[in-house]
């Protein structure tokens, strides 16, 4: 009996393990969850007769932890800007030289010489956006383009604020409000920051990633938020306005890159070239509501994306601030502040 069970188990295990064979004509993509346009994938599959699997991760760090251990079986990942520079430094990405590819000419020149991949030898733009905050203009009628709404909340917003549950997003916003540098290790400045955050936290209701539900259900009237998510929230609560605070706000870009030792390297390169086509890049944007960094894609995009105040920045807004990865000393400081804040 027992041996039967065990042998059945082994047989079953072996049978299952053969199911993801590394056959030709496949491509395994590891992207942020619910971020890949199904239309784009179908189009790619039909054009090249390649079977694509897509899996999702919830954070850059989850993806990094898996990739670092090796043998994930994935070909393509879509890390954020700072994560690209970490992964290049750690030798986790394949140098595929997208800058020599056929469609590279479509990449908007301002996204070519970026700090995380100067000249684009490893990665190409997927989508980019900003992280600022969104506020209900019927609840708060004053000037919204200042971080004071978060750190010195006016009476009507006290207890009605959601912050992202993200160490870097919260700390960077605080540093901007105080006018200090990012990746800061100045103890005096960090002390002031800690005091500011602890004081401001009393006015925050929640710290959570599910910003859309919080806003549309009326739990909060202001939320730190990504621009695309703000647009989705506005569709259900039209009085929401996305702020471009004068103290500055975060810019980010997710980039398509190929893992070192990718089992389907050639297919992966095909995909990288494929998404630099304006028509295909537009499919990406239409699905996830962020800008894509490919020139000439606008005519193929949904009209509402072209006019959305979350995506089209006003001329007087400060430039988005792309924050490189901080060194371990700074991260250790940030950890202590974060634990103190949330103890």
């Amino acid at each position: 009996m027992k041996t039967k069970i065990i042998s059945t188990g082994l047989a079953l295990g072996l049978a299952m393990s053969g199911s993801v064979a590394l056959a030709e004509g496949t491509l395994n993509i590891y992207n942020w969850g619910n971020y890949t346009s199904p239309e784009l994938i179908t189009k790619f599959e039909e054009a090249f007769d390649i079977k694509v699997t897509i899996d999702g991760y919830d954070s850059n760090e989850t993806m990094l932890a898996k990739v670092k251990q090796g043998n994930t079986g994935y070909d393509i990942v879509v890390p954020g800007d700072y994560m690209i520079s970490i992964m290049i430094e750690q030798g986790l990405l394949e140098k595929i030289d997208p800058n020599t590819m056929e469609n590279f000419g479509n990449v908007d020149p301002k996204w070519v010489d970026v700090y995380w991949d100067p000249g684009r030898s490893y990665s190409v733009p997927w989508q980019w956006g900003t992280t600022s905050f969104v506020v209900d203009s019927e609840v708060y009628k004053g000037d919204i383009n200042t971080l004071a709404l978060i750190f010195d909340a006016p009476p009507e917003l006290k207890g009605r604020i959601n912050m992202l549950n993200d160490m870097n997003d919260v700390i960077n916003a605080g540093l901007r409000y105080l006018g200090y540098d990012r990746c800061n290790s100045n103890r005096e400045e960090l002390k002031a920051l800690t005091e500011l955050l602890i004081r401001a936290k009393a006015d925050w209701r929640t710290m959570d990633y599910s910003t859309i539900e919080k806003l549309t259900s009326g739990d909060v009237d202001l939320s730190q938020n990504w621009n695309g998510a703000s647009m989705r929230a506005r569709a259900q609560r039209p009085s929401l306005v996305y702020a471009y605070p004068k103290e500055g706000f975060t810019g980010w870009m997710d980039n398509v890159a190929v893992l070192k030792g990718a089992p389907n390297l050639e297919n992966a390169k095909l995909f990288v070239n494929f998404i630099m086509d304006p028509e295909n890049a537009a499919l990406i944007s239409n699905f996830a509501s962020y800008a894509n960094g490919i020139t000439g894609s606008a005519p193929f995009m949904k009209p509402e994306l072209g006019s959305a105040p979350e995506i089209v920045m006003p001329a007087d807004a400060p430039a988005p601030d792309f924050v490189p990865p901080c060194n371990q000393e700074v991260v250790d400081f940030y950890n202590k502040i974060w634990t103190k804040l949330k103890q």
Binding site: G56, Y57, D58, Y209, S210
Partner: peptide
């Protein structure tokens, strides 16, 4: 989330990934 390989996304993982974009 940590152990799954290509093509092995389960429903909870799918939902987790969807949170930021709104479920």
């Amino acid at each position: 989330l940590m152990v799954a390989g290509p093509g092995e996304t389960t429903l909870p993982i799918f939902i987790l990934g969807a949170i930021r974009r709104g479920i």
